Amino acid sequence: MKKILFIDRDGTIIKEVPPTYQIDDINKINFYPKVIFFLSKIVHELNYDLVMVTNQDGLGTEKFPEKNFWPIHNHILKILKTEGINFSSVHIDKSFPEEKSPNRKPGTGMLTSYLKNSNYNRSKSFVIGDRITDVLLAKNLGCKSIWIKEHHNNDQLTKKEEKFYFGKINKDILIKNVVVLQTDNWKEIYEFLSKLKETSKKFLVHKRTTLETDVKIIIRLYGKGESHVQTGIGFFDHLLQQISFHSLIDLNIHTKGDIHVDEHHLIEDTGITLGEIFYQAIDKRGIERYGFFSLPMDDCLATVALDLGGRSQLSWKVQFYREKIGKIPTEMFFHFFQSFSSSAKCNIHIHATGNNEHHKIESIFKAFAKAIKMSIQKDPNRKLHLPSSKGIL
């Protein structure tokens, strides 16, 4: 899901010019200090899509003709573009406040079409703007606000406007609940968003409980390969630890199941839960997507190729000559990877040859881990893009 910064223009990217607050002359363009430098770092380092949302009161009227607006607006975008700052979408409302248009901020009307076709993560998206209406827009979009707050008072509303915008909402409570950062410094905005990126690298917890099993998994996708695994089946624990160690994914897996019946439910449900949390944890923008690895282990050779393309499919070309390895029926290895493939929505091809059954399955798990590690690595040249010519995964 996308992380989006909905960014105001005047008073946020460029300075406003009282008393009209209209940027109708190229000489009025004055960028916020360091805004280009830090917006560029945000774009190149933090994987946000940028969407411009701006009210331009009376644009197209005699007092604010469009012929004065568009050359200046396009010039601003061109300057930003030279530093790699591209807005995926630009939304401009031309109405006056008294018209009470649903398209005017803080209304979301002008974003309707964009939001309909955009799968974005509200909890990780922000509105950045200088007016109280930008804070209200964040509330209406279901995300948080970064409030550009200088020592001027450009957010005063008339009593009619306050009643229209706020209704029974207490302004102070709104600010407390929606505003996560109040600043006039773009360096502080960059540092705030950078800290969120570090936080996103922390652990994710997922549970799955049925009448047959109870599975809890904690994962950190880009970790150090540390693990604590307890399923009640020693050899299965060992194999899951191999996934963690060789992929550098930190894993804490605790599974209880009806192994007094047999091992089927426990192994299958662990695979399902591991696939589910893996799918939740991964941000596919900028990843390599494909992973493949051939790994020898004495007489055995395992090859694993996978695609995190959103399609679930397992191709299994492995033959075992023993009924069990440790306490695990060999047929359950197919079910484990099939369960993972289905819930992680990925395509996996596994092929292994060899005589020693222990070496064969262990080489498969190690090769799988190496392929996973390759597939989730970030391509620095595609930080904002999904690795698909379709634009969707």
Rank of each mutant, 00 (worst) to 15 (best):
K2R: 13
K2L: 11
T12H: 02
K15V: 03
P18Y: 02
P19K: 00
P19D: 06
D25R: 09
V35K: 10
I36M: 06
S40F: 04
K41L: 13
L46M: 10
Y48E: 08
Y48N: 07
Y48C: 07
T54F: 02
T54D: 01
T54C: 05
N55K: 00
T61F: 04
T61E: 05
T61K: 11
E66R: 14
K67P: 05
N68Q: 10
N68H: 11
N68A: 06
L77H: 07
K78C: 08
K81I: 02
K81M: 12
I85E: 09
N86C: 00
H91G: 06
I92A: 10
K94Q: 04
N103M: 03
K105F: 01
M110N: 04
T112P: 00
S113T: 09
L115F: 05
I128S: 09
G129L: 02
G129N: 03
D130E: 06
R131G: 00
I132K: 04
V135A: 07
K139G: 07
L141W: 10
D155P: 06
K159P: 10
K159W: 13
K159V: 14
E161I: 03
E162D: 03
Y165S: 01
G167C: 03
G167V: 09
I169K: 14
K176H: 12
K176E: 10
Q182L: 00
Q182M: 08
Q182G: 11
T183H: 01
N185R: 06
E188K: 14
E191Y: 07
F192P: 04
L193W: 03
K195A: 06
L196S: 06
K197V: 11
E198V: 09
S200I: 02
K201R: 12
H206K: 12
R208Q: 06
R208L: 01
T210P: 04
V215G: 00
I218Q: 09
R220K: 15
R220H: 07
Y222W: 06
E226Q: 09
E226L: 10
H228F: 11
G232I: 02
I233G: 01
G234A: 06
F235H: 05
Q242V: 00
Q242M: 09
Q242W: 07
S244M: 00
H246M: 02
N252D: 15
K256N: 15
G257E: 04
D258R: 14
V261A: 13
H264C: 12
T270L: 09
I277Y: 13
I282Q: 13
D283S: 13
G291D: 00
F293G: 11
S294I: 14
S294M: 14
M297Q: 15
M297E: 14
D298Y: 15
D299L: 12
L301W: 12
A302P: 14
G309H: 13
G309P: 13
L314N: 14
S315L: 15
F320G: 11
I325C: 13
I325R: 13
I328D: 13
F333S: 08
H335Q: 08
F336C: 07
F337K: 05
Q338P: 05
S339V: 03
S339C: 05
S343P: 00
A344G: 08
I350W: 01
A352K: 03
G354M: 03
I361Q: 12
I361A: 11
S363C: 01
A369P: 10
A371R: 12
S375A: 15
H385A: 15
L386H: 04
P387I: 06
S388K: 12
S389Y: 13
G391W: 08
I392A: 14
I392P: 11
L393W: 11
